[in-house]
């Protein structure tokens, strides 16, 4: 009886809050209605283009039928849990993305430092050039790597010219090294742009104070600048790592004998249409991404997010 009463109460409460949102009388209620109006379109998009498909994908991983969701089966999950191949793919994806993130953020710090702290000639052009690859889809990035490291690649041909060895032997675009450069190629611009934002907020007075107290530029960087940009570096690393995990087109073209999660999903579908396994990998990926973001955001302020 008491339970029913409290349910009735909460329904009444919910109805009354809906009522105040629809027919507000105070300014705060009017504000709530405005917030609702402004966010509803986004929620509709997120639900129908995001959450519903993700739920369907979860169902897909548990489907008995291959071509549509029907019947229940945990076979795909069993395969995923027992087949070591998948564990290795997961591990490969993570370390590869982490290593690429590390290198990209390190270079990003240096590039951002140069852009923000030195007055370089043609700064606008340089910034534009550094940001250019953000616009490139993964397949084009792959082509850029071929241009550098492929058989006709600039670096390959240069090394071949000086060493006298065959360019075919020297081409590294489609090896793991080429793939790594591909990752770094797409990640450096993102890291740099995020870190430029961080650098812009550094207190230059403190840096000048340190210099006037006799600190060398490097000491100033180590003791004053670096502690200030550290949160930005962490934020940048988290965001760049997320981007690294999502890379697909570059791997699809370069292959490099190296399989990451996104490529495996494609392979599962292309070879034998193992839709349940593809979906199961997708679910694990999304779950990991959400957990990672959830944990990572504890170290990140919203205003540090940029792309």
């Amino acid at each position: 009886m008491s339970v029913r009463l409290s349910i009735g109460d909460s329904i009444r409460q919910a109805l009354s809050s809906v009522h105040t949102v629809v027919f507000p009388t105070t300014e705060r209620e009017r504000e709530r209605r405005r917030i609702a109006i402004m966010t509803i379109p986004f929620f509709v998009l997120a639900i129908f283009a995001g959450f519903v498909p993700l739920a369907t994908m979860l169902r897909m991983s548990l489907s008995e039928e291959q071509l549509f969701n029907e019947g229940w089966s945990v076979d795909a999950w069993e395969t995923l849990a027992t087949d070591r191949t998948y564990w290795w793919i997961g591990f490969n994806t993570l370390w590869f993305a982490a290593a690429a993130t590390l290198v990209s953020v390190a270079i990003g710090v240096v590039v951002a430092h140069a852009l923000e702290k030195y007055s370089l000639p043609f700064e606008r052009v340089i910034v534009a050039a550094v940001s250019f690859p953000i616009a490139l889809p993964g397949i084009v990035v792959a082509f850029m790597i071929v241009v550098l490291l492929g058989r006709q690649g600039l670096l390959t041909q240069t090394v071949a010219f000086f060493s006298g060895r065959s360019a075919i032997d020297l081409a590294t675009a489609t090896t793991i090294g080429g793939l790594f450069l591909g990752y770094v190629y797409s990640l450096i611009p993102r890291a740099t742009m995020i870190l430029r934002g961080t650098y812009a907020e550094v207190n230059t007075d403190a840096e000048e104070a340190a210099r006037s107290l006799g600190a060398s530029p490097f000491e100033t960087f180590r003791h004053v600048t670096f502690p200030e940009i550290r949160p930005g570096i962490v934020a940048g690393a988290i965001l760049v790592f997320r981007s690294a995990l999502a890379i697909f087109g570059t791997v699809l073209i370069l292959q490099g004998g190296f399989v990451v999660v996104t490529l495996r999903i494609d392979r599962e579908l292309a070879v034998g249409f193992n839709s349940q396994i593809a979906a199961a990998i997708g679910v694990v990926y999304v779950a990991f991404l959400i957990a990672f973001t959830f944990i990572g955001l504890r170290f990140v302020r919203a205003e540090q997010v940029a792309i």
Partner: peptide, 29 residues
Amino acid sequence: FYARDWVNTLAILPLVPGVILGIAFLRTY
């Protein structure tokens, strides 16, 4: 507003990569 930070996160961080959204989309619609 309530859960503003969560809505913000959802709005500024890509929810899923294109590949995965792709398979989910095809099955849903």
